[in-house]
């Protein structure tokens, strides 16, 4: 199974999330078959993130191994009702990938933690709300319609693993401007996705 299967049209997102939570509960109980199920469900998206951020197939494999072992060891920390399992898992993958990239640069590594995105764990994610009605191309469109400077800030941060300070240095923009671009871009994407998912 792939991530696409997990959010396939016609399959209610709530059912997917229920399945995911059951799988995670089984992982917390030490069931290897459950870890295998989680891997099968999200391996493609997880690897795509890791490969894009690291730009290195070998490093991306290491990231995935660390991330899924992190999920295996800390599944009990996942708090039901504070976000989807998918969001939790992919946040771990992204955090590990960014950490791996920064370890190759003369900067400090990120803190070791599986509680990677408290914000995302306190509200339903937009994709979870609308994914049954949207395809990936629509989501890509939400990124494409952003002003160039905002899209660049998002891409350098999320896909490039750069810090806000590094982005400011690279783009020549003041740090406050970079922060503002990130914020406006995320808010614009959220509005766009909710509008698309809510229908005409």
């Amino acid at each position: 199974m792939s991530a696409d299967d997990a959010v396939a049209p016609g399959r209610p997102v709530s059912t997917v999330e229920d399945d995911d939570r059951q799988v995670l509960a089984r992982i917390a109980n030490g069931e290897l078959n459950a870890l295998e199920a989680l891997y099968d469900r999200y391996r493609t998206m997880a690897y795509s993130i890791a490969l894009r951020v690291t730009g290195d197939a070998s490093l991306a494999e290491d990231v995935l191994q660390e991330a899924f072992l992190g999920a295996w060891r800390h599944a009990g920390r996942y708090a039901e009702g504070r976000g989807s399992v998918k969001t939790w898992l992919l946040a771990i993958v992204h955090h590990r990938a960014v950490d791996a990239v920064r370890r190759r640069r003369p900067t400090n590594a990120l803190p070791e933690t599986e509680d990677v995105t408290p914000a995302a764990l306190t509200a339903p994610d937009v994709w979870g709300e609308v994914s049954a009605d949207l395809d990936a191309s629509t989501v890509r469109a939400a990124l494409d319609v952003l002003p160039e400077a905002q899209r660049e800030a998002i891409e350098l941060a999320y896909f490039g693993g750069l810090t806000q300070q590094e982005i400011a240095t690279r783009t020549g923009a003041p740090l406050g401007t970079v922060k503002g671009r990130m914020r406006l871009a995320l808010l614009a994407m959220r509005r766009h996705l909710l509008d698309q998912g809510a229908g005409p």
Binding site: L64, L90, P118, A119, A120, D125, V126, W127, R183, R190
Partner: peptide, 19 residues
């Protein structure tokens, strides 16, 4: 929380690659 809720959608913009 609102800003964080968009992050999973960013992953959807990637072309899928099988490990």
């Amino acid at each position: 929380a609102e800003l964080g809720s968009v992050i999973p959608a960013l992953a959807e913009t990637l072309e899928p690659v099988e490990p």
